[in-house]
Amino acid sequence: MANILIMGCGDLGCAVGTQLAHAGHTVWGLRRQPQAIPEPIRPLAGDFGRADGLPELPPILDTVYFIATPGEFTEAAYRRAYVDGLRNTLTNLERAQQQPRRIVFVSSTSVYGADDGRWVDETSPTEPTRFSGRCLREAEQLLSDSPVPGVVVRFGGIYGPGRDYHLLKVREGIRGLHEPPVWTNRIHRDDCVGLLIYLFHLDHPDSIYLGVDDAPVLRHELLAWLAQEMGLDTPGTTPPMPEGAVHGKRCENARLHASGYHLQYPDYQTGYGALLDQIATTRAKLSRLAGWAALGS
């Protein structure tokens, strides 16, 4: 059994850590508010964004997950979380004379600068145009230059329980129908967790994986499909899209499939369908509870 450290034990980190701990591994999770870390993960208080913010590292680490979450969407916050955070982590590992078998670094498809609808994969040029992608790419390079073997996972847009951005937009009436068409790439939260755990077990992983599902989709098509599934649009009322170039990029996940990982939700229809079913089930349960409470009052 292995010793595992999760740097940035938020939603994804807690889900990964809980499953690995239940499988018999010893898992530590680090975050600024460790009281939010569930058992059986062992909580550690720390802030990897500060050079002096890390506690003493657990002994003989086999695997380190680095799953940062910037506090805000600013360049300073991204640099602190990803570049400073990973550098401080690597420095502390070296100081403790630790050589983990693997560091799994959660990155993003924002490291690609392509914005003309082209296909990209792990070998495509990374020329990010926004600060978020530049900070992530700089951190990826730090890991690549370090003596510790690293695996980078570039996730697309994550959706799932608690990550319902597009559902909220649809409820607000936004359909993207008056904007130039834009490609988007998505992955269900449960597949993020599944892939991160799968990479722990994989003997000879590649250094980079694109973590996306099989079906890039134009944003207006996604929103229109969600609206129909949510009963918010009448069929036949969709106005034509404006003319113009297609923007965004389409991410190819052939390497993910070649690794042997099988997506639980291979496209947005199955993933969002499951999410909508879950929301409906929760609402029905709450409605029944409210009815029982009213009968008992």
Rank of each mutant, 00 (worst) to 15 (best):
A224P: 02
L210K: 04
L222A: 10
V246N: 02
S207H: 09
T238S: 12
T234K: 14
H220K: 03
W225L: 08
N253K: 07
E229C: 05
E229W: 09
D233H: 00
H220C: 13
D206M: 04
A227F: 01
L202F: 06
V217H: 06
T234G: 00
T237E: 08
G236K: 02
Q228M: 14
L222H: 06
H201M: 04
P216L: 10
P216A: 10
N253Y: 13
A215R: 09
T238H: 01
L210E: 09
D206K: 05
L210H: 15
T238Q: 10
Q228P: 09
A215H: 13
P205A: 07
V212M: 06
H220P: 05
K249W: 02
E229I: 12
A227I: 05
D206N: 09
A215T: 08
P216W: 12
A224S: 15
E229Y: 08
L223K: 03
D233I: 15
D213L: 05
G236N: 03
H201I: 00
F200M: 10
L202P: 09
A245L: 06
R219W: 00
L222S: 05
N253I: 06
D213P: 00
E252G: 12
K249R: 13
I208Q: 06
T234Y: 05
H247A: 14
P242F: 15
L222V: 04
M230E: 12
L218V: 13
G211N: 04
L226M: 12
W225P: 09
W225C: 07
R219I: 02
Y209R: 01
E221C: 06
A224I: 06
E252V: 12
G231V: 06
D206T: 00
T238P: 03
N253P: 10
E243T: 15
L210P: 07
S207R: 08
A215G: 10
D203G: 14
